[in-house]
Each structure stands twice: as structure tokens, then as C-alpha cells.
Design a protein around this nucleic acid. Structure first.
Lengths: 246, 246
DNA sequence: TCGGTGACTCGTACAGTGTTCGAGTCGCCA
DNA sequence: TGGCGACTCGAACACTGTACGAGTCACCGA
């Protein structure tokens, strides 16, 4: 039932007779799963395939992991762990901005995996910690009570929701490459979207076509940032009007 | 290869000898798929199961539909068709508000299905039409060029992304019930979230726990609406400052 | 009336899935 | 030395999406 986490004696496996392979740990499994999904997409992640990726039988994985869903949860939470805590010396607005931007950067970097965020609630420790930090920043900004919850959830859902939908439009293979290539991919995607719009029956969707040519003038970072800034503008204004009354 | 859409003679099937059953059409298939997913969750939707649901062999469906992915796309687009066009007599802000609120209402109503929005790009005719209407409202509000694209995408991704993430946290079975029951479900979910937060190790996530009791004081509609209003506030302010310069 | 054609249905089969079960191996400790 | 617990794994089960080919049947031109 439980994993090998409790008191695993270090180096129990034979070290001699050639470096057979590293011992199989939960960390290695999760890392291999993320790597596989990054390279070949979520559909490529089957237990058997992940097993061969680790030179291990498929059913062996079930000693370390309850089932595939738990594995996905662990993978998601692992990548959420890469969201850094914002520097508390910065202004609250800058802290919130970085939290949102970093969240999106981390999620898009693993864009083949984040669709599972839409599949079940996210309750891993790293997710919880990240949300807790968000609430902290919002609270120190001056929000309290109901407004604190509302403001934090608006930011959280904007950042994650935007990223999830954005990733849905991207090609499936080969995420987790360097940032420059990611930007290139995003740009290619914009071009595809524009090409698609051009194929639509003329005059039926006038505003879409009118607007298509402006798509390429805005890269994806700018699109995300614009809505984020407007949201922060609105929050700041709301904070100013409701500060005095409790 | 192609479906029966082209010149299907009406009433070709025998009408006598008992009402055998309605002829199998693409519409009936899509409707049955949505209904099944609403009732029992996305995992319950298999081609065989959908077949028996329609008193039909599983492989029969493949004459009407290319594959399961296409079926899901059709289902998604079908429910997106329920988003009404906003009354053009209203103010632009009110129109945008209704577009966003209606989008969320429609999506949450079929909350077992909308996770496929996170799976692939959404390019169905109803989706396109809805986005076109959104661009139209934003344009008539006074946005142009780059700002038009940015503002519309911010709203689109806030509304859809928020809904997708929200649905991910909801229980899987029995969507598409009446609005009152939906609200009840949402409230139950809030209580579960609060209960979960209470189980966290004390003091480790101080801001989350501090905030938990405020969760129940905000229903889900209000949470969505708050962020939406802040976003609209920000857009309105941005429009005011950039109206004169082209 | 006959034959054909195209619309439509479906049983079978194939490769692949997640997961269970029971048997196996092997380092360590009493 | 014997046993135990950690760990691995092959076989099997019930299921999945889908290709293939055979079948049925309404209609149409000859």
C-alpha cells in the first residue's frame, strides 16, 4: 500500500558488477514521466512505456505509485514547485505580476502536461504553497475579508486559466525546450491561427478577419501581460476606494 | 469518408411496423454524447457505450463521425452554440459582462465536458462565431489595432479559463441539472475546499487558513464576477487614456 | 421487373490501455 | 540458517478506439 519512502537504507542495491542502474525512486519516476510527456505528449505516457523508459517492468511502477492519476498529480505538483516566491521587498503589484508571469512561464514550459489541471482539483503541496504565497501578497497589499479571497482567486484563475487555454492551442510535441524556441513555437502558432482565420468564409465573421492581421503584432507574452495589467489596474483601483471602510 | 449530410431524403426509413426508432443522425449522436457525459462523466463516454445508448452498434457511429476526437469537438461546439449574442442596445461594458457571464454559465452547466477545451484548439463554427461577436463588441467599444486584440483575448481567456479551472474542482457526476442544484453543488464544493484547508498542517500555510473562513461568504458567481469587473475596470481605464491618440 | 448503387449497419479483430494477482528475487537481521 | 520485508515482474482481465469487410435495404435507371 505505502511506498518505499519510509527508511530506505541507502545503497542497499549492489554497487559492483557494473553500474547496473540507479535505484528506482519515486523522484526518478516522476521526472521520467514529465520528460516523456514533454517530449512526446500526454498520450505517449502509458505505464508500460514509462516502464521501458526506466528499464523496468510496467507493473513495477505500481509499487511506488498508487495509480496513474496519482502519478499525474505528482508530476503536476512537481512542476508547480518551480514557481518561485516573489521578492517581498518589491511592491505588492510587482510581486503579484511576477507570481502570475512565473506561473504562466512554468506551465507553458510543460504545456503538454498542464491540461490535467483541467481534469481534477489541484491539491499538491507545491500548489497549496504557491496559493498560500499568493494570498499572503494580496493580504499585505491591503485586501482583507471577502475582497482578499476575491482578488486572489481572480489572479490565480486568470494566470492558470489563461495558460491552460493557451497551451491547448499549441502543437503537442516537444515542449520544455529553451525559451527562444518556445517563443518561436508560439509565433508559429499565431501564424497558424491567422491562416485558419483566412480560410473562413468571407464576410461571415467580419470582426475576426478585420482583426487577424493584428494578431501577429502581439506576441504571446504581451497578450498575457496586457490582461494581467488591466486586472491589476482594476484591483488597485478597488483597493483605493475600499481602503478606509472596513 | 463523408457523412450523410448531403441530400438525405426525408423519411426514407420505414415508418410502419411500429416506431422502430428515430433515424440515427449526427445531431442525435452529439446530443446523446453530451447527455451521457453530463450524467456520468467524460470517462463514461466510450464509443461502445454511446452505441448502446443509441441502440446501435459501436462501429455504426463511425459512419457519421470520423473519430472520437471529432465527436468531442462537435459536442463542445454544440454547447458553445448556447452562448447568446448580447443585446447591441446595451452599453459595451454590459455587453461584455453578459458575454463573459453567459460563457461561464454555459460551460459550467456542462462541466464534465469542458475539460476537452484544455486538450486541443477550439475551432468549431459556434466557437468562431462567439469569438467574432466578442471582437465586434470590443471594437465598437472603441478599441482598435493591437489594443483590440489584446482586450478581447484577455476577456476571452479570463471567462473560459476561469470556467475550465473552476469545473476541474467540481465533482464529476451529474452536471446539467437545474441552476439551483448547480449552485448547491458549487457551495458543497466550497465547503469541501474549506474542509481540506483545515486538514493542512497548522501554521504551515498561515494565509490560506486565515482566509478559509471567508471562502464560504462568497458564492462562485460572485467570485467570477469580481475578477470580471476588475478586468472591465482596467479595460475601461485603458480605453479612456488611449482614446485620443491613434 | 431487374440489377446496381450508394447509404447505412454491424460483428470481428487488433493493438493497446490501466490495473490486479501471485510468484519470484534478493539484501538484511535475528 | 531461516525468514521477512522490500521490490520486481509476467500473465491475465476487462476495457479502449478504430479498420475491415460483409451484410441489409431504399431507391433509381433501364
Amino acid at each position: 500500500m505505502s511506498g518505499p519512502d519510509s527508511s530506505r537504507p541507502a545503497g542497499w542495491r549492489r554497487e559492483k558488477a557494473a553500474p547496473v542502474q540507479e535505484p528506482l525512486t519515486l523522484d526518478r519516476i516522476v521526472a521520467a514521466a514529465i520528460d516523456l510527456v514533454d517530449r512526446e505528449g500526454l498520450d505517449a505516457l502509458s505505464m508500460r512505456r514509462l516502464g521501458t523508459e526506466l528499464n523496468v517492468g510496467a507493473t513495477t511502477l505500481y509499487w511506488h505509485v498508487k495509480n496513474k492519476d496519482e502519478l499525474l498529480d505528482l508530476a503536476i505538483d512537481h512542476i508547480l514547485g518551480a514557481i518561485p516566491a516573489p521578492d517581498p521587498a518589491l511592491s505588492w503589484r510587482e510581486q503579484l505580476r511576477r507570481l502570475a508571469v512565473d506561473t504562466r512561464r512554468v506551465l507553458i514550459r510543460h504545456r503538454n502536461l498542464i491540461m490535467v489541471l483541467a481534469t481534477r482539483p489541484t491539491t499538491g503541496p507545491n500548489a497549496i504553497a504557491s496559493i498560500d504565497r499568493l494570498f499572503g501578497v494580496v493580504r499585505r497589499a491591503g485586501f482583507e475579508g471577502r475582497a482578499l479571497v476575491l482578488a486572489a482567486l481572480a489572479l490565480l484563475n486568470y494566470a492558470s486559466g489563461y495558460s491552460v487555454l493557451e497551451a491547448a492551442g499549441l502543437s503537442v510535441f516537444g515542449s520544455d525546450v529553451d525559451e527562444a524556441t518556445v517563443r518561436q513555437r508560439l509565433r508559429e502558432n499565431s501564424e497558424q491561427v491567422m491562416a485558419f482565420i483566412e480560410t473562413l468564409p468571407d464576410g461571415q465573421f467580419p470582426d475576426l478577419q478585420l482583426v487577424a492581421r493584428n494578431l501577429l503584432e502581439t506576441d504571446d507574452d504581451a497578450r498575457f501581460a496586457y490582461g494581467l495589467e488591466r486586472l491589476l489596474d482594476g484591483l488597485e483601483a478597488d483597493l483605493a476606494t475600499t481602503r478606509a471602510p472596513a
